[in-house]
């Protein structure tokens, strides 16, 4: 029994190491100068940790010809993130409420269509979507990429909120209707205050999802609005001459940091969001 217990912890610690090593390596390397990286081991602790590489990554790392650092991508991601998250969560909440509480005719058909739609790979839709957005003048623009994030977020957001509102007793809506409240009043005064937890879950899911997106940003945002992930890949995978590993890893960390912070700040909600988003109803 005792030996089994020790084996159990040994296995778990080994697993913990497997999961943490990539992050540790990236953190340690980002704190070293290049000379130390060339001569030393990747697992060695930095001799004199400093943030020079971080500063360079932020201020002056090169993406192709421009050398303005990854901060450009950071602010692009930020400008994409805020309206996309706000609008897609609001749309999901309203859709879920309308579907689950008011049950209009065809609600189930729409729900099934959305669920199946969520499984269609982006690659199937990308090209025609580019055509549509070009035709209405939104291709390669900030509103364009925001619209795309809202559209692709619709299925999961709608499903999460529908499942939540379907779990509320029907009588709540009935009581409010007898009290004379209408669609919007019931939503804002009764349903929304009830939805704080599920709103947090949805916001976290969208914040991490949209921040981490690469493909949509690459195709729809255009060069001027390229999000941080796109810029990061440009910095690391297309740079000329000798690779500055410490700068690359610092840039990687800077890109990973916002969702990591969200994760560490909100563990429980994050897991709920990930499983809800994954299992999709």
């Amino acid at each position: 029994m005792k030996a089994a217990r020790i084996g159990l912890y040994a296995f778990l610690l080994g697993a913990a190491l497997f999961f943490s090593i990539p992050l540790l390596i990236v953190v340690m390397t980002s704190l070293k100068p290049m000379t130390e990286i060339r001569t030393g081991s990747i697992f060695a602790l930095p001799l004199a940790p400093n943030f020079d590489a971080w500063v360079k990554a932020w201020m002056s790392a090169c993406t192709g010809l421009a050398c303005e650092g990854i901060r450009v991508g950071f602010w692009n991601s930020f400008r994409i993130l805020v309206p996309s998250v706000a609008l897609s969560v609001m749309a999901g909440a309203l859709n879920g409420y309308a579907l689950a509480q008011w049950k209009p005719p065809g609600a189930n058909a729409l729900l099934t269509a959305l669920m199946l739609g969520a499984f269609i790979p982006y690659q199937v839709i990308l090209y025609p979507m580019v055509k549509i957005l070009s035709n209405i003048g939104l291709y390669n623009s900030l509103p364009g990429i925001i619209a795309v994030h809202i559209i692709f977020g619709l299925p999961v957001m709608t499903l999460i909120f529908r499942n939540f509102y379907a779990g509320l007793p029907d009588e709540l809506l009935k009581a409010a209707r007898v009290d004379g409240a209408g669609f919007w009043r019931i939503f804002f005064e009764i349903m929304l205050p009830l939805s704080i937890n599920i709103l947090i879950v949805a916001v976290i899911l969208q914040v991490t999802g949209i921040w981490n997106d690469y493909l949509l940003g690459l195709i729809f945002a255009g060069r001027d609005n390229a999000p941080m992930t796109v810029q990061l890949n440009l910095i690391v995978n297309t740079s000329m001459g000798e690779q500055e590993h410490n700068v690359n890893m610092a840039a990687t960390l800077l890109t990973a940091l916002p969702p990591l912070l969200v994760y560490f700040a909100s563990g429980r909600y994050f897991v709920r969001g990930i499983t809800a988003g994954a299992v999709k109803g």
């Binding site: 007793p169 009588e171 709540l172 009935k174 009581a175 409010a176 005064e189 009764i190 205050p193 009830l194």
Partner: peptide, 9 residues
């Protein structure tokens, strides 16, 4: 109502 349907918030 049977479940009272009080507005929880």
């Amino acid at each position: 109502f049977q479940s009272y349907a009080l507005y929880p918030t």
